[in-house]
Amino acid sequence: MHYQGTIYRPPSEANSILLQVTTGCSHNKCNFCGMYKGQRFTITPDEIIFADIDYAVRHFPHARRLFLCDGDALVLPQSKLVTLLERIKSRLPQVTRVGIYANSKSLQSKTVEELQVLQQLGLGIAYMGLESGDDLTLAGMNKGATSTEMIEMGRKTKATGIRLSVTVLLGIAGAERSETHAVETGRVLSAMDPDFVGVLSLMIEPGTLLHAEYQAGRFAMPEPLAILRELRTIIATTELTAGLFHANHASNYLPIRAKLPEEKTATLALIDQALAGNLALKPEFLRAL
């Protein structure tokens, strides 16, 4: 397989074929993210992609999932995505789900009909980074979209039959807007009604604009218990029709995996135990991105 730079994929794609169709991120302006800094966004030529698909045919004959890397492959022209998915369906018929990162801008660039075509060709799940439902936090972190736009694009995705996985970041609003961030994030998640919610806790990366703000004293990181309270508020204010809520990423202080709405009460009780000091939080040295 041909790979350029560091390859990132969602935790749920750990056993998937990783097919790099772009390099870097088409937005690449988020103040907190250092994943693709210094990496120019490029589109992988068809001949390389097709060679990698042929490689996967020989070496991963039993893999049932495939993930299109990098940061926002949905930004590819519709014709290229159609050709790519048709090739995967033809050469890797055992693959039952193709996943992709998507942001608000790339989702806006596709019509509902175009997304439905991609879904019919095997695109089964889109991973969308919400980070926060608070518009001031979104603007401050240069996400490039408002909460209203995020809701619209999330609903648009679900309407096509593509499953929606939304990521949020605890601590991203800093200490000052911690509670607002949590309440507004619950509001937006409820409006989007995703199939999956993935929660990470902010870890400030050197080299990012947020790190410079932190060093200059203009961004105050919430304390661990405040981050845990954010998690509790988000869960308490999120109403899902039927979704999985994951907060078991290595960055989190308390691993949570719950079905909502049926396990909400038990999950809130578990968090309350931790807030009361009856459950140990993950020590800092074990946290990681």
Rank of each mutant, 00 (worst) to 15 (best):
S190Y: 07
T237R: 12
A226K: 09
A159E: 13
V197K: 06
G174S: 04
E176P: 11
T148L: 13
R163M: 12
A220I: 14
E239K: 01
T241V: 07
E239R: 15
T233C: 06
K158E: 12
E213A: 07
I162F: 02
R155S: 08
A182D: 13
L170P: 07
P194R: 04
L164T: 12
T157R: 09
E149W: 10
P224M: 13
A216K: 11
V168R: 01
E179V: 13
A216V: 06
D193P: 04
M150Q: 05
L210N: 09
I172R: 05
E223S: 10
L202R: 12
T148W: 15
L200V: 05
A175I: 01
G174R: 01
L231N: 11
M192G: 00
I204R: 05
G154R: 02
A226W: 01
A220Y: 11
A220G: 04
E213D: 13
E179N: 02
R177T: 14
G198W: 11
E149Q: 05
Q215E: 02
G198K: 10
V168A: 01
L210E: 09
V168E: 05
H211G: 00
T160M: 08
E184P: 04
V166Q: 03
G174V: 04
I227N: 08
A159T: 08
T241E: 11
R232Y: 13
R229E: 04
I162Y: 07
E230N: 10
G161W: 14
L240P: 10
E184Q: 15
G243S: 04
S147K: 06
E184W: 00
Q215L: 13
R218S: 00
L202F: 14
